[in-house]
């Protein structure tokens, strides 16, 4: 019963599948043993693996599926096919891209106490619940993939000094890896994507002073403007924040205004550069096309794809500091 399965690209267009099988010991601890096999198809690789594993092999508990970046560049549909077909795999299963070789990641000892699959699942789960990772899972990947004005995205995992870390967000053009954004960009990306009520943002003020603002609830609204021939979209972002750290001695009202302004600037700058990247690569992870579709009669996908790279997308942000902790200063 593997909880995590990984896929690498192997020679001659083959797929290498790696499974971290949990081993339950008598003292109630769990460890892992990894198995690998190579084949042209996923199901056949699994069949080959059966020859090595004594116990029955079922993927009903699969919680994380990892794909190497090389594989993702060729497209994921081929490899996702058996999972989508299988009635036993949960639609909540997380998918992630690995920077490097998946096999190396699964074979390393990044998890001391827990089973590796559970560890990875909780890592991703936690970052979605209290971090900056936008919500993704098997269902949502499929949703964006099959939607006309939307492209999927997946978290990137990376092995770093025997630790696994989330290194950013992989952006897809249809099912093929197209580009990635780093953690800082991912924070802003999530703000633009959905309503969030957690997450922290570092604000650089002048002369080497910094403040940290915690998000206490942000709302994002898309608005349509322009004509149907030349649509424009405005992304309106409202953040209620609390100051949790300030590197100066005293926090005045003026400082608060300044922090608000700087954070707005930062978000708009990053947001604009993100939009620029998306439009140049013709990818639409925010689902702006889907939004425009829902507001346009007789929407035409081909026409939209011509419009998208050159269209105007405005980002407006307004930050409102509502709390500053339990001290007055």
């Amino acid at each position: 019963m593997p909880i995590v399965i990984g896929y690498d690209k192997a020679e001659q267009n083959q797929i290498e599948m790696t499974v971290a099988a949990p081993i339950f010991k008598e003292d109630q601890t769990v460890s892992n043993k990894t198995y690998s096999s190579v084949s042209h198809t996923v199901r056949n690789a699994r069949e080959k693996m059966r020859a090595e594993i004594r116990k029955p092999f079922s993927i009903g508990k699969l919680s994380v599926a990892l794909y190497s970046k090389d594989l993702a560049k060729d497209g994921l549909v081929k490899i996702l096919n058996p999972i989508k077909r299988d009635a036993r795999v949960s639609n909540r299963c997380y998918l992630a891209i690995v920077d490097g070789k998946v096999k190396d990641l699964l074979e390393s000892d990044f998890s001391l106490e827990e089973e590796k699959g559970v560890f990875l699942k909780e890592l991703i789960d936690g970052k979605i619940k209290v971090g900056h990772l936008p919500r993704t899972n098997l269902h949502q990947f499929g949703y964006a993939l099959h939607s006309e004005g939307m492209d999927p995205y997946l978290p990137i995992l990376k092995l770093h000094n025997k630790n696994v870390r989330i290194a950013g967000l992989a952006l897809f053009k249809d099912d093929k890896y197209a580009s990635e954004i780093n953690l800082d960009q991912m924070r802003v990306f999530r703000l633009l994507l959905e309503n969030v009520n957690h997450g922290t943002y570092e604000v650089k003020l002048d002369h080497d002073s910094y403040a940290v603002v915690e998000n206490q609830g942000s709302k994002v609204r898309y608005r349509m403007g322009g004509s149907s021939e030349k649509p424009e979209v405005t992304i309106d972002l409202k953040i209620n924040g609390a100051i949790t750290e300030f590197s100066e001695w005293r926090l005045t009202e003026q400082d608060k205004r300044k922090i608000e302004m700087r954070l707005e600037e930062q978000i708009i700058d990053t947001g604009k550069s993100l939009m620029h990247t998306f439009q140049t690569l013709q990818i639409d992870p925010l689902g702006i096309g889907d939004f425009v579709r829902s507001k346009t009669r007789n929407w035409n996908n081909a026409k939209w794809e011509r419009q998208y790279p050159g269209m105007q997308i405005h980002i407006r942000a307004s930050v409102n500091i509502v709390e500053s902790g339990i001290t007055k200063y």
């Binding site: 009635a87 036993r88 949960s90 909540r92 499929g142 949703y143 964006a144 099959h146 939607s147 006309e148």
Partner: peptide, 26 residues
Amino acid sequence: SRGQLLNEEWPTLTLFKFIRLPFIER
């Protein structure tokens, strides 16, 4: 999404695949 719905054989049953309770996984 539209394309997804076209590909789904039993959409209403697949909806249940999403629900997970503490005492029942499937």
